[in-house]
Amino acid sequence: MPFIFVVTYMCFLAPVHQAALPNMTISDLSYKNMDFAMDLYRKISSYHDNNVFFSPLSISTSFAALLMASGGGTHQEILRGLNLQQLEVADQPELIPRLFQLLQENIAQNGSLKVDQSMALFIRQQFEVEKAFEDKMRTFFHADIKTVDFADTKGSVRYINEYIRQKTKDKITEMLSTLDETTLLLLINSVFFQGTWLMPFNSNLTRNGPFYIDNYNIMQVPMMFKEDKFYTMEDVPLGARVLKLPYQEGVSMLILLPNKGIDYTVIDDEITAEKFLSWVKELRKTRLEVSMPKFKMEQEYSLHNLLPDMGMVSLFGSSANLTRLSKEAGLKVSEVRHKAVVEVDETGTTAAAATTTGIIPYSLPRMFTVNRPFFFFIYHEDTNCLLFMGRVIDPSSN
């Protein structure tokens, strides 16, 4: 059976200004994407107790493109899997891809914000893709559409890896090692973010300190240190504290740190889009001494093994309906790979002091020490779009 091969990948390199969102339709999309992200995180984490890192935006965008290619039950399964069924309007078939287009434009409207998202469609020679699908890929996702000789597997792998290397600024150099010579189409989506802290850490203050993986495993890791005024809050029912670390130009990292003695696995099921937005809303500024580990992770996931458990079944089997992609019969998606790289360190340049207007005293301990497993979320503030999320169990493990 001919098949389609999908690759999603992202790369984030790192070392809050908040605005009202005028377009509620983009807000709805961001909210739905966030709940999909939390569901996918729980699916990934159910398989292991290791580090987790992925880009919900990259994965959602790739499958939004496949929505335009699918029909019947396959289309409905993708909608439900992405948690987008409530945004589907019968007489507006282009509404969801249009929302993704608006979201991307909103994120990219600040010219100095380095969040680059791109999509590419690599098509086998002589394979006929519906012109309407190609046109929509260019219109809504600004996709590069390229013809490739997949029969030359080694040449195709080199060509596609070079494309990915350029798009991720050399951070992902070998996404593919092999390709099936019967591949008809390869869909690539990338999200690349390089951020500098608005309030950088001083590398001269970085010292080795203990990180408590669990009650029996303690390791020494490089701990960054910064004393300043930070946005923070405490979720008492959840048993966790939240810290916001802003980057320059409207992107922030939100750290969720379970309280000492609270197992992070207990918190897994409680993380939702509603929870996330409540944390952001309740943040208050206070002076803190923040200690957190430097860490670097590279994670890769075979989503075709995870997504069927989230309802996307037919897409990967003989009953796949991809008739809007091509008139050729018997098409299915064979693989969906997602690779993510993150590096967090002291990097940053000194910026103007944060404003103190509207600061409210908040009774939290002066120390925020991230010395045990924690969650982190990278989000675009104006849209509340979740760009990346992860879980750090062992900051020394790459």
Results as ranks from 00 to 15, higher is better:
N106L: 08
T355I: 02
V290C: 11
E134A: 14
S118W: 07
V392P: 06
E227S: 15
S70P: 09
R241C: 06
E174V: 09
N384Y: 03
L186Q: 02
R324H: 15
F133L: 08
M389A: 03
K32H: 14
G348Q: 12
Q220V: 04
L198A: 12
Q101H: 15
F140D: 02
A351L: 12
V16D: 01
L364D: 00
D263Y: 09
L288F: 08
D382F: 02
V290K: 07
L277G: 00
S112M: 13
L187R: 08
K32F: 10
K114P: 00
K281A: 10
L277A: 08
Q85S: 14
G311H: 04
R372M: 06
Q248T: 11
S62F: 04
Y212P: 07
G390Q: 09
R98H: 12
G317P: 07
R324V: 01
G209A: 15
L184W: 00
D39P: 03
V191L: 13
N398A: 15
V336P: 01
L82Q: 10
G155D: 03
G239R: 01
K260R: 09
K154S: 11
A320N: 08
L87C: 11
F316I: 01
M367H: 11
V341C: 08
V280H: 00
P210C: 08
I393D: 05
L386G: 00
M389P: 04
F140H: 12
A352E: 08
L315W: 05
K294M: 14
T347D: 13
V280F: 06
V290P: 03
S112Q: 10
I213T: 09
S334E: 13
I213G: 05
T182H: 14
L325P: 10
N83M: 11
S334V: 03
S55K: 10
V221H: 11
T139Q: 15
V290N: 07
K332N: 09
M24V: 06
H338K: 11
S27A: 14
I107F: 04
A120W: 06
T178S: 14
N384W: 02
K131G: 00
E181H: 14
Q194W: 05
R324D: 10
P56W: 03
T196P: 00
M10L: 01
G73V: 13
Y47S: 13
L185K: 06
N398P: 11
F54V: 01
A108C: 13
F368P: 10
L99E: 05
T147A: 14
D135T: 12
T323W: 03
E274A: 14
R124E: 11
T356K: 03
G317H: 06
F211C: 12
L84M: 15
E77Q: 15
L29T: 05
D382L: 07
V115E: 03
D269I: 04
L66E: 04
